[in-house]
Amino acid sequence: MTVTPTDEQLVHATLAGDQASFALLVHRYRRAALARALAVVADDAEAEDVAQEAFIQAYTELATCRDPARFGPWLLTSVRRRALNRIRSIQRRRAVALDDTVPATAEPAGELDRRELRGRLHRALAQLSLIQREVVLLADLEHWSHAEIAAGLGISVLMSRRHLSDARRKLRTLLDTPSP
């Protein structure tokens, strides 16, 4: 029988110098970190970079994690903070390089469709509040329970339910509307 190590065990093992334990933590929280970053930056590549940086910072500052059993929420708080900083930095970059044009790249038709679909979803998600985006991504992309979302985002289960319900209703309306 394989026993899955707890977050607390993995944190302690990492602090004792076992990097493989931290790789397990990265594997465990990768999707949640990406979802939370994506909810803020609304761009796959930026979200991946933010999530990676948050993991690296978590590794460097792991000794400051006061409750190793709550590594997940601790990490996700860092992801959110980094993602918000990234958004500000992107907005500054865009303001400076307003006239820059992105050269078009040739893509297969299927990939173009998927990219268009992702674009529509991102545009619709952008109409939600940040907390609604975070909740709907963790619920409908990561399949987290309301208890997990509440613990991960530091909100109550009741608020998690309310945000998810509002987010789904808004998204359905936005996605049913034909894109211009």
């Binding site: 796959d44 319900s165 789904r168 998204l171 359905r172």
Partner: peptide, 12 residues
């Protein structure tokens, strides 16, 4: 309205 949405295009 409370059925889960299909967000698989965003799946990492």
């Amino acid at each position: 309205t409370d059925e889960p949405l299909d967000l698989t295009p965003l799946d990492p």
